[in-house]
Design a protein around this nucleic acid. Sequence first.
DNA 1: GTCTATACTCTGATAGAC
DNA 2: GTCTATCAGAGTATAGAC
Lengths: 205, 205
Amino acid sequence: MPNRRPKTRIQQKNSEAILEAALEVFSQAGFRGATLDQIAERAGLSKPNLLYYFPSKEAIHAELIKGLLQVWLDPLRALDAGGDPLAEILGYMRRKLELSRDFPRESRLFANEVLQGAPRVEGALQEELKPLVDEKAAVIGAWVQAGRLAPVDPHHLIFSIWATTQHYADFDVQVRAVLGPGHDPFAEAERFLTTLYTGSLCPRG
Amino acid sequence: MPNRRPKTRIQQKNSEAILEAALEVFSQAGFRGATLDQIAERAGLSKPNLLYYFPSKEAIHAELIKGLLQVWLDPLRALDAGGDPLAEILGYMRRKLELSRDFPRESRLFANEVLQGAPRVEGALQEELKPLVDEKAAVIGAWVQAGRLAPVDPHHLIFSIWATTQHYADFDVQVRAVLGPGHDPFAEAERFLTTLYTGSLCPRG
DNA sequence: GTCTATACTCTGATAGAC
DNA sequence: GTCTATCAGAGTATAGAC
């Protein structure tokens, strides 16, 4: 069994190839729908060789999820209590939208997981996601209290940003089927969502 | 093999039990994650007996999807070009939110499908969903042109309603994990989304 | 119409040669 | 470290008795 931190270049390279292939397959088929055969083929390895690098299918998936959550939370962490309220919220929306655009597979991997009851991430939701969201919701709530933002439920505002931005990654097929060719969904989404949140969050008397 | 339209009461009852069980299992595990064993057990039938009513796993899934799409489109069909613009859009949002609240399994079944590339519904998206959305987007666009609604991209407005309302069904686990106990996510969502869309869509000079 | 038994395939994982 | 061969179990589907 290889060490936790692969040392040789070959090990490094193969580990990365496996995780890359696994991301592709898991995100498209879900945990149970994915097969080691598919992952091995994409990674250019035999199935037993793949299982030399990771002890099980579960372990590959866990490794992907582990690396993912942090990246996923970064945009919210960057929400700055000292900044301009509307600009901070629009900035958060944009960062989430960029993640959806640049890392759609990661978004779908996560969506698959939560959609099926989050059996492998429920702990992380409770211990990492909830505290961070509560903290940032308090920041938004304080902005509302200070009259710097229109009255709004902070938690549901955050939910709506998640929903609207991740929609373009998770339901990409549907979005493109409805829009037809000749569209740039993400660019259009940025304009639309900027309008949506600006109109709704600007304080007025 | 039974006829297309089951005739006896037993056939009727068993067919319904199978579809009910299949909805539960497919929505929670996805197509490949679901097994006939699980469906048969929930339906109170043996596995071969289940396959007496439906020729294959695929056929059960197809039957569910077929019945689903119509129900899913009804709220949008009800959007009335002759009504008050904001009231019509808020009404649409509310009907979608009620679907998420009352039929979360149906929402997750559909989400699972689209998330994995919509292999079994892509045709329906093109032939049924797109024309309907285009028609209603034109209605919204006309409202904007007439100055009865703030300027907004109609297609992306519809996407945002889908995303924000279905989020409460599809990501239910996450929403509840973040909110903690003592919340009614759907009631809170209705208030929040009413504020969000009212603030953003009211025309102002 | 419903059951028991089973055929056959796929899949995750292991053994052991090189 | 990588491969061929293979196992054991799960899963879909069918045969055939009742």
